[in-house]
Design a protein around this nucleic acid. Structure first.
Length: 582
RNA sequence: GCUGCUGUAGCUCAGUGGUAGAGCGCGUCCUUGGUAAGGACGAGGUCAUGGGUUCAAGUCCCAUCAGCAGCUCCA
């Protein structure tokens, strides 16, 4: 075997995989009844799925690690042995997990790896030469995982670990994790008083005044871009007669996730989507191809009964505000409309400095409606639009909605969990179900194409993503409190209030700390609240009509005239600058 | 929904069957200051909820609710 240097990603994976085997041996020595299922390397580490009736607890991690250290210290060689598939099946008869693994393997030769005398595991390999070559590791967590990811199958115990070439690498990684956790929007949401949740409504967010400032700043920007791209805006009801949802197909396909109520003895549903309501708006009058494309946006509040275990701060809630829009157009207009949506989407993402997102194209699923021809046209339109814009994307074969293919925009949170933001979906179902028509050039009635799209996806989620993206240190245009005036002592309070009034008159969001604290304490507090600007004022500043500007993240200060501060700040707001420097 | 863990003051947490604790925050007072936390005093608790065991439960057991990690799901 080639010498392993652990200098590249591939070797790191091998080391982590070997570490998974060592952990498996350790666990089997502690719990002889444990049955091993599958133990691959993953990003930053590895896991092993184990079938064991007794739960493995965090308190057990230490003794597992202790046992692992023994195995590593013994420096036992990893030895590969091979046999034909039939022999392997015979050898592992009775072990349903490993038998299943063999059946899923594509090779005719099945390999095993042993390290030492009493541990052997079915494995494709490769591995390190000996157990002693493993670097620094730590067991991180244990959680349930269904066998084959199938909820009808038995739930296994998945033990996660992390492994790195050196102790320093491990420490750095653990440190990075700690830093990432500090950016968690759920934590910052409380610390910065942006939003909260309450047991009275699990999954329903309470947005606080400071959170609403960010929200409204995003809405203002969102609306200006949509104006520019030719969108109109509507608002449709949250509660609508149940019959509407029978017609839309939601009753048959989405009932489990919907809330229902009764009004005057009549069944009503709380909308999980905005499209049916919009279709009713469309039908209020006749339409001609001459009006197309029609682009109609709605900041629609939708409710979806998500499973209790999937809620996650603002990222996964039961009530959220979609930045929804529907485009009605002819088949010929699909591609150019898709391109328009992509351009609009990128323009909005760019304003927030998002670079790290990826795009997925989902194609026709097994269960679908509509002809093969229309699916091909639609999928080609989406694909051509992406190619036309030179955008890289991943294809999710068969992952489209039953009514049409879709493009999704995904982004990762501070702990590398992936979340969907925007989506563009072609819908072949709704216009026909609602009998939507337009008069074509040939004076016959036709069914319009409906494009359903969201750019931010959910305002709640997007605000959460922004909090993590900026780590709570918002650019000036989004900051709930853009500057705070900090008088040196109460003798300067009058001047401080005068400066505050001047800046507020100019539409800046400015606070003033009149508390009975020393300047150091006022700065520490403003700093912990991630204020962009701290304006220290005392007798010197009052004398010359200036403020001493201290910028977030910078200990240097600069004294400028009030007007100059105002001018610079206004420019940074108008240009949506992230940089606060003067 | 499933598996495991957690729930004590506004927040972060200690409390190992025998009178409810700390730091921060909050209030009042002293202090009036020059760039990351000045001092004193004080208020604040049905220990998530409901049962059970026990002479005695924040602590042990059961259930429920909520949160956390992951799985599954996500039109």
């Amino acid at each position: 075997m080639a010498k392993v240097t652990l200098s590249d990603e591939q070797n790191l994976e091998i080391m982590r995989h070997s570490c998974a085997h060592i952990m498996a041996e350790a666990i089997c020595s502690i719990w002889p009844d444990a049955k091993l299922v599958y133990g691959p390397p993953v990003e930053d580490g590895f896991y092993y799925d184990i079938d064991l009736d007794e739960p493995i607890r965090p308190a057990d991690f230490e003794r597992i690690e202790e046992k692992m250290r023994e195995i590593i210290k013994a420096d036992k060689p990893f030895i590969r042995s091979e046999m034909p598939r039939s022999d392997a099946l015979a050898k592992l008869a009775g072990d349903k997990y490993k038998t299943d693994n063999i059946k899923r393997a594509d090779s005719d030769v099945i390999s095993f790896y042993s390290n030492g005398d009493d541990f052997e595991d079915l494995c494709r390999g490769p591995h390190l030469p000996t157990t002693g070559k493993v670097g620094s590791f730590k067991i991180m967590s244990v959680a349930g995982a269904y066998w084959h990811g199938d909820p009808t199958q038995k739930m296994l115990q998945r033990v996660y670990g992390t492994a790195w070439p050196t102790p320093k690498d491990l420490d750095d990684y653990l440190h990075r994790l700690e830093e990432a956790k500090k950016r968690d929007h759920r934590l910052l949401g409380r610390q910065l008083d942006l939003f909260s949740f309450n047991e009275s409504g699990p999954g329903f967010a309470f947005i606080h005044p400071r959170g609403m400032i960010i929200w409204n700043a995003v809405v203002d920007f969102w609306r200006s871009v949509h104006d520019k791209y030719g969108y109109q805006q509507v608002q449709t009801p949250v509660i609508l007669n149940e019959q509407l949802w029978h017609r839309s197909g939601h009753w048959d396909n989405y009932k489990e996730n919907m809330y229902f109520t009764t009004v005057d003895g009549v069944g009503y549903a709380i909308k999980p989507m905005n499209c049916p309501g919009l279709c009713l708006v469309y039908k209020t009058r006749q339409h001609s191809y001459r009006e197309f494309p029609i682009r109609i946006a709605e900041l629609g509040v939708v409710h979806r009964h998500e499973a209790s275990g999937v809620m996650h701060g603002l990222f996964r809630v039961r009530q959220f505000t979609q930045d929804d829009a529907h485009i009605f157009c002819t088949p010929e207009q699909i591609e150019s409309e898709i391109i328009g949506v992509i351009e609009l989407t990128f323009e909005i993402y760019k304003a927030f400095g998002f670079e790290d997102f990826h795009i997925e194209l989902s194609t026709r699923p097994q269960k679908h409606i509509g002809s093969d021809e229309i699916w091909e046209t639609a999928t080609n339109a989406l694909e051509n639009a992406l190619k036309h814009k030179g955008i890289e994307y991943k294809i999710n074969e068969g992952d489209g909605a039953f009514y049409g293919p879709k493009i999704d925009f995904h982004i990762k949170d501070c702990l590398k969990r992936s979340w969907q933001l925007g989506t563009i979906q072609l819908d072949f179902s709704m216009p026909a179900r609602f009998g939507l028509v337009y008069t074509g050039k040939d004076n016959t009635e036709k069914t319009p194409v409906m494009i359903h799209r969201a750019v931010l996806g959910s305002f709640e989620r997007f605000i959460g993503i922004l909090i993590e993206h900026y780590g709570g240190g918002f650019p000036l245009w989004l900051a709930p409190e853009q500057a705070r005036i900090l008088p040196i002592s109460q003798k300067s309070n009058d001047y401080a209030l005068m400066v505050q009034e001047t800046l507020r008159d100019a539409q800046l969001r400015v606070g003033c700390d009149l508390s009975n604290e020393k300047i150091g304490a006022k700065i520490a507090r403003a700093h912990s609240e991630r204020l962009p600007y701290m304006l220290v004022v005392g007798p010197k500043e009052a004398q010359f009509n200036t403020v001493n500007v201290r910028i977030r993240g910078d200990k240097k200060t600069k004294t400028v005239e009030i007007d100059e501060f105002l001018r610079t700040a206004k420019h940074k707001i108008a240009d949506k600058k992230v940089d606060l420097a003067f």
